[in-house]
């Protein structure tokens, strides 16, 4: 029988993950920069709403544990997975999902963001304003890459 010829890319995977998180929205856009450059900026995570600084505490294969501090002084202990073009993290109060993949046609990078303030212990985010915040985060990332 025929073997799979093409896997889902990371952006498609992010849509699937978001489907499993109640209230989650996905902000998607294409940035006119190469994948490597875009992913380097995304992986720093500090363009996301409320995340001022992020310290990676430890990694083990694709597993990652990080400490984040918000602009308002809150701290979040994030655990999850990081792979090229992919990052999924959760803490008690946050869910963060990032994806990047070369855009079709080979020009630019398609990115997608999801997550938000987590309803504690649940696969759900507070639905209000989520898409607006994610879209703003995409704007911030685009501005940084233009510099």
């Amino acid at each position: 029988m025929t073997e799979p010829t093409r896997e889902m890319d990371t952006v498609q995977r992010l849509h699937v993950m978001a489907a499993g998180v109640r209230g989650a929205r996905v902000a998607e856009r294409i940035l006119p920069a190469p994948f490597e450059e875009v992913w380097e900026a995304m992986a720093a995570l500090d363009f996301l709403p409320d995340l001022q600084r992020v310290w990676v505490l430890r990694t083990d294969g694709d597993r990652i544990e990080a400490l984040a501090r918000s602009r308002y002084g809150f701290r979040a202990h994030l655990r999850g997975f990081r792979r090229p073009g992919w990052c999924w993290l959760q803490s008690r109060f946050l869910i963060v999902g990032l994806a990047a993949a070369p855009a079709p046609g080979g020009t630019g990078t398609r990115i997608a963001l999801t997550g938000g303030v987590r309803i504690p212990t649940r696969a759900a985010v507070v639905p209000f304003g989520t898409l607006r915040e994610l879209t703003s985060a995409g704007d911030r990332l685009a501005t940084r890459l233009e510099r």
């Binding site: 073997e3 799979p4 093409r6 889902m8 498609q12 849509h15 699937v16 489907a19 499993g20």
Partner: peptide, 21 residues
């Protein structure tokens, strides 16, 4: 994939979207 052939990846994504939802 053996059912959807060239459209296999789309079918995989649609399936997983339904399953996760």
């Amino acid at each position: 994939t053996p059912i959807a052939l060239a459209d296999g990846p789309d079918a995989v994504q649609e399936t997983l979207l339904v399953v996760f939802r």
